[in-house]
Design a protein around this nucleic acid. Sequence first.
DNA 1: CGAGGATTTGAAGATAATCAAATCCCGTGG
DNA 2: CCACGGGATTTGATTATCTTCAAATCCTCG
Lengths: 211, 211
Amino acid sequence: MTPLRHAPVQNVGHAPLLPVGDCFSLPGVVLSYAQSEQIYAEGDRAHFLYALVAGAVRTVRHSSDGRRQVGAFYYPGDLFGLEVDEQHAFTAEAMCPAQVRSVRLGSAEDRAIAQAARRELARAHDHLAMLGRRSAEEKVASFLLELAHQGPRDHAALQMSRQDMADYLGLALETVSRVLSRFQDENLVVFSSCRDFRIIQRSRLRCLAST
Amino acid sequence: MTPLRHAPVQNVGHAPLLPVGDCFSLPGVVLSYAQSEQIYAEGDRAHFLYALVAGAVRTVRHSSDGRRQVGAFYYPGDLFGLEVDEQHAFTAEAMCPAQVRSVRLGSAEDRAIAQAARRELARAHDHLAMLGRRSAEEKVASFLLELAHQGPRDHAALQMSRQDMADYLGLALETVSRVLSRFQDENLVVFSSCRDFRIIQRSRLRCLAST
DNA sequence: CGAGGATTTGAAGATAATCAAATCCCGTGG
DNA sequence: CCACGGGATTTGATTATCTTCAAATCCTCG
């Protein structure tokens, strides 16, 4: 297999994201977090709803034997931190310097809560579809398509490490890396660096993803 | 491996379920469905919230190449059918004769909706944890524990086929069957028939599930 | 009793995990 | 500016797990 050689860099920041609802107009304090800093921990009491203003956030959960499951990745405009129980089921961490607005949960935010719950649910359902009975190729292809979908012209910057991707997709990190190399060998995508890529053959990739 | 021989039948109906909130006091019509009958289909407009009164219901989704993903199993007292979009993302089917109360979604049911959303979310998160990076043994062990948890004294009746279990756990049906046989060989559980089981060594099973 | 679907079991093959090592990349300090 | 160090990533070889294909058995129901 040819090495994963990177094409010349054309720097693409992460996409300016999204059609946002009222997430930015919520009341609440905006806090800044450094890379890898924890926003809340699994087990903490869940008193707040969080709106990501800038940066990227992941939620993770560790099982007793040390395996890690990434719950979701969040980008600006996303709401997160909503829980069913009193306690947070996942830990939330900044993937890069991030700004987060936290909103104390009260009866006034019912609408925001409902919105967050529904989005969260959609996210979870998509994630489920991704994990169940799919090959490594299919998982990685879907993941890339999903990411590139948000960005302009099939470009995207990966905010996460290979380990994060692996833990999100339910694969070993080496497997993720191998599949990415194969995709690049077959000219489906091009990586300008290991965190920046561009989709070259969207149709073939979609076919591999077979969603 | 010794055959999966069934212990004498001591019939255990499915557990009388649950501490129920206000699901039964919602307004709405109760309809009956036969086994395998569809309650709604993937793609249908989502105008109702459903409360399962009796029986069991599964939600499924098919990918283009025919693979099936089971989204969730529902038992009496559960609310289902809540969607994020206008359309249902899954198909809902009765797993046995079932009675379902359907509630037209209006502003009056906000509380029920919020409740349904949160439970659904918890369910999805647990399901995610089940699917990611776990061995077949771990998946099946967790599944059995979860089922038996609802019932009395570690008994439970499986309302679903091996195929359903497999599609829920992201495994091949043969794999599910093999793991169940092994568990029975090791006297972790006893099957009185292929749909009724009892947990014998809860602690060892929990250890295998390693949640 | 017979038929057909569901389940179990066997054997072979495929896919992904694991273990291990090489390479890349980037910030740091000389 | 460039060498150095260390984490991230890629790659290779081997192994374990799970799937697939196939066939036997069980169970239910007419």
